[in-house]
Design a protein around this nucleic acid. Structure first.
Ligand SMILES: [Zn+2]
Ligand SMILES: [Zn+2]
Ligand SMILES: [Zn+2]
Ligand SMILES: [Zn+2]
Lengths: 146, 146
DNA sequence: AAATTATTTGTCATATTTTAACGATAAGTT
DNA sequence: AACTTATCGTTAAAATATGACAAATAATTT
């Protein structure tokens, strides 16, 4: 828990309350851990951190919390990293786009209208009904360049 | 090996030869297995199939072959499925887009210029230098509707 | 051709990531 | 309170992926 994640947790509490979602203790703890990480964190890394707060937690605790948080839209899973990041905005979205810096490990979530439209156009043309999608863009962030 | 994968393997052989890449026996076998699957196949599924062709193969054999094939651009990894598909075209590309049907399990690789441009615009605006990216679009394919 | 070097392979084992199952606990309902 | 549903803690075990190293193969050099 820190200055950065406390406001986020306040927001998350209200966000969940407004939707009938239960932000229980383990869920809130894991959310705090993901927020505080500030970059992608794996389930086992989160488990290790959680172990500093509660006694000897087990993997299912973290995985269940992450599943819940994902469904709630509070965290995203970066598939290409097997890791999780907090959603950068308090918005429902079934799709997400990430700029993943392979040098420093940071991930920036972006919202690109044109990207959204391009995917909509493509799926429509193919007669495909899109549920959710994600674009994971690997490369080098601004800071990490000469 | 079948009527579908044989021409693909011929192409792959020429493709690799032209680039100084060595399409060795285990690599060609694994490629054949992925092509023949016709839909995403996991490393361990491929390992099981390979076990019908050679005696008691081990995971590293398949993983190494898949790594090579990926680097060569002959197969893609679908991160959200932990599975692999053959590249639908004989083209170099550092990026790919997939329409993944969650009902029938098929995956269609598409090439969308607008999507490519949208990602280029976004990364440029953020000062991000993009290496490779992939968009994995989950949903329901044309066949699986109504 | 022989020696050298680099790449690839087979094999052992292990590490990492994720899930199933199930009884206990807590929350929401009638 | 009695009932139903959701969540939790715990014990495994399944599924996914990699490290290490010697043997074999292929490419390169002498
Ligand atoms: Zn988000
Ligand atoms: Zn960076
Ligand atoms: Zn492709
Ligand atoms: Zn389908």
């Amino acid at each position: 828990m820190c200055g950065k994640c406390s406001p986020y947790l306040d927001f998350a509490a209200a966000y969940c309350a407004g939707r009938g979602l239960r932000l229980t203790a383990p869920r809130a703890q894991v959310l705090g851990i993901v927020v505080e990480a500030g970059k992608p964190i794996t389930a086992y890394e989160a488990l290790a951190v959680l172990g500093q707060q509660v006694k000897n937690p087990k993997p299912p605790t973290v995985y269940r919390a992450l599943d819940f948080l994902q469904q709630a839209g509070l965290v995203h899973r970066i598939e290409s990293l097997n890791a999780y990041v907090a959603c950068h905005g308090g918005h429902d979205h079934h799709s997400s786009q990430f700029l993943i810096c392979d040098d420093c490990g940071t991930v920036q979530e972006v919202e690109s209208g044109p990207l959204d439209k391009a995917i909509g156009d493509t799926t429509e043309k193919m007669g495909f009904v899109s549920g959710h999608w994600s674009a994971e863009i690997h490369g080098s962030c601004k800071k990490c360049q000469g």
